[in-house]
Design a protein around this nucleic acid. Structure first.
Length: 415
DNA sequence: TCTGGGGTCCTAGGACCC
DNA sequence: TCTGGGGTCCTAGGACCC
């Protein structure tokens, strides 16, 4: 008798915001948004209360969304803030119009990582097969865990939920289903602090009525294309033949859409993986012009290279492909990269190769963002310091395919 | 004053090898 | 000389996710 596959998806409730509320319990019940980017002008108000225990700073002293200045987006909004239509990935300025009275706090990555490690290790002690899906999410394989089959997984989910709350005072929502795809959808059914169990037999009644966008992997573009074909719900997709979907979406996507709509997914829970790339990027407070802001850009560029090199070294990786990313003022993105003949984590090397990449993009327009990336990673110890340089195809760059800049401003070359 | 930062995976053309 | 196909690597862009 083989155990039925039971996979859980666990999602921490409003994670970044909940972590802040542990520090500032006086904000409970209020609309609070957590966002990157710059602080508001009156952060100083908070500083004036330095010395007071954090939990005694009056709620009225916190900076408000209406005073926010900058280009950030919202990372997390508390449930009271969501009532105003504010949500993740929304621009701060737009959110400020919807809920000007919301309190804004910056992301505290160190604190978030601390709680992330804590809730994940709590899970791993109970159910060892865990797949990391970012700071606030995991998949858990319940199949072989003692008691993992009881009530379709509800008993174990309850146990995990309680253990996490005891260890962190944070709540989460869990979905348990026959596979990752369904578990992911299930975890959204009863939020916050809920548990939802889905069986294969529930696909028609509970999954098919959902909009296509609820399938993890269908984003805005796919949603639009589906809508043009008059497919709005998952049932609409399921009602099409596999061949029809393949004709319209191509072999891979078509077949995947058909499987997803029928709730089929056999991806395993992957407990370990190696990073593929590491990058650093930054959006400027105002768009920078390659000519007028040349010095500023050069400094930022070097800083990004130093940071990405530091990340690689700290984590023990080296890479072979070095690239840049630009976002122009019209949001158009350009990337260039170059693969060199040896692995590196050296800031100067990265800076030099990235500088060459920069010469291959259009530098006549204002930039909104600049990024540096290192890919083709290997563990620092295991990678050969150099590889055979005469290997064909490796080594010297091919003729640049991008158009050369109109004017070579020698912008980022170090003097 | 719309629209962050850090990722993964896929596609598609060209170079180059056998 | 022409025809050819499989396979890998490199590069650029794009969709999507958290």
């Amino acid at each position: 008798m083989t155990a039925l596959r039971r996979i859980a998806h666990l999602d921490m409730d409003a994670f970044f915001a909940s972590v802040e509320l542990l520090r500032y319990p006086q904000l409970k019940g209020l609309p609070v948004v957590i966002g990157g980017g710059r602080r508001t002008a009156d952060d100083r108000v908070l500083q004036r209360h330095a010395g007071l225990p954090l939990s005694e700073i009056p709620a009225s002293a916190f900076p408000l969304l209406r005073d926010y200045v900058g280009r950030g987006v919202i990372t997390t909004a508390t449930y009271p803030a969501r009532q105003f239509g504010v949500g993740s990935a929304m621009g701060m300025m737009k959110a400020a119009k919807l809920c000007p009275q919301a309190i804004v706090l910056p992301v505290d990555f160190d604190e978030v990582r601390t709680y992330s490690r804590r809730f994940k290790s709590t899970i791993a002690e109970i159910a060892p097969v865990v797949e990391d899906r970012g700071v606030d999410e995991v998949y858990i394989d319940f199949t072989e865990v003692p008691g993992g089959q009881r009530e379709g997984g509800r008993a174990l989910a309850r146990l995990i939920q309680r253990a996490i709350f005891e260890n962190t005072a944070l709540t989460c929502s869990i979905g348990v289903a026959p596979n990752k795809l369904l578990a992911k959808m299930a975890s959204e059914f009863d939020k916050p602090n809920g548990i939802s169990i889905v069986y294969e037999a529930d696909v028609q009644t509970r999954i098919w009525p959902l909009p296509v966008r609820k399938i993890n992997g269908i984003g805005p573009k796919a949603e639009l294309k589906l809508a043009k074909l008059h497919l709005h719900t998952i049932a609409d997709i399921a009602s099409q033949s596999r061949d029809w979907l393949i004709d319209n979406f191509g072999m891979a996507t078509g077949a995947w859409l058909h499987d997803a709509a029928w709730g089929r997914d056999n991806r395993p829970v992957v407990t370990e993986s190696e990073p593929v790339s590491m990058s650093r990027e930054t959006t400027f407070e105002r768009d920078l012009h390659p000519v007028r802001d040349r010095a500023e850009l050069g400094a930022v560029f070097t800083d990004l290279c130093v940071k990405v090199a530091g990340d690689l070294q700290r984590k023990g990786y080296v890479g072979k492909t070095i690239g840049i990313k630009l976002r122009y003022d019209d949001f158009q993105i350009a990337t260039r990269d170059q693969t060199i003949d040896h692995f590196t984590a050296d800031a100067t090397t990265i800076r030099q190769i990235a500088g060459q990449c920069l010469k291959r993009v259009d530098l006549s327009r204002r930039l909104r963002l600049l990024g540096v990336r290192v890919g083709k990673l290997a563990k620092a110890g295991s990678a050969p310091a150099t590889q055979i340089a005469d290997q064909p195809g490796a080594g010297a760059p091919r003729a640049p395919s991008g158009s050369a800049p109109e004017v070579n401003l020698d912008l980022f070359e170090r003097s």
